[in-house]
Simulated assay, not measured.
Amino acid sequence: MNIFIPLIVGVLIGYILRIKNRKINLEVPISAALLLLIFFMGIKTGNVKISAGWLLGSSIVFAVLTITGSIGIALLMEGRK
């Protein structure tokens, strides 16, 4: 619920500014907000305790299966030309 209030306020402010035909440069505040978001996501991710070996192994298996599936679908689609 806490996410919807700023979202609705932002939509209303944007709608009001659109009606008044004001051009506001939002590039700098948006870039700063994104950098802060990425920074805090990194902090939160760093706090999570995981088993690095299991994660590496499952990531490799997932990557190999994804590549194999993509190649298989490409070979199947090549024959349908």
Rank of each mutant, 00 (worst) to 15 (best):
M1V: 10
N2H: 15
I3P: 08
I5L: 12
L7R: 08
I8Q: 01
V9E: 08
V9R: 03
V9K: 07
G10K: 00
G10T: 02
L12G: 05
I13P: 03
I13C: 11
G14F: 13
Y15D: 00
Y15H: 00
Y15I: 06
I16N: 07
L17K: 12
L17N: 04
R18V: 07
R18Q: 12
R18P: 00
I19F: 04
I19V: 15
K20V: 11
K20A: 03
R22H: 10
R22D: 11
K23Y: 02
I24S: 03
I24R: 00
E27R: 12
V28N: 10
P29N: 06
I30H: 01
S31R: 11
A32T: 11
A33V: 08
A33W: 08
L35G: 15
L36T: 13
I38E: 11
I38D: 06
I38S: 14
F39Y: 13
F40T: 15
F40K: 14
M41E: 07
M41G: 02
I43P: 09
I43Y: 10
K44V: 13
T45G: 00
T45W: 10
T45V: 14
G46V: 01
G46R: 04
N47I: 05
N47G: 13
N47P: 00
V48I: 12
K49V: 05
I50V: 12
I50C: 11
S51E: 08
W54T: 01
L55S: 00
L56P: 02
S58E: 12
S58T: 09
S58L: 13
S59E: 03
S59K: 00
V61T: 06
V61P: 00
A63D: 04
V64A: 15
V64F: 01
T66I: 00
T66M: 03
T68F: 12
G69M: 04
G69H: 08
G69V: 00
G69P: 05
S70A: 13
G72Y: 10
G72F: 02
G72W: 06
G72K: 14
G72A: 09
G72S: 15
I73R: 09
I73E: 14
I73D: 08
A74T: 10
L75P: 01
L76S: 14
M77L: 10
M77S: 06
M77W: 01
E78C: 10
E78L: 07
E78G: 14
G79F: 12
G79Y: 04
G79A: 11
G79W: 06
K81V: 07
K81E: 10
K81T: 01
K81A: 15
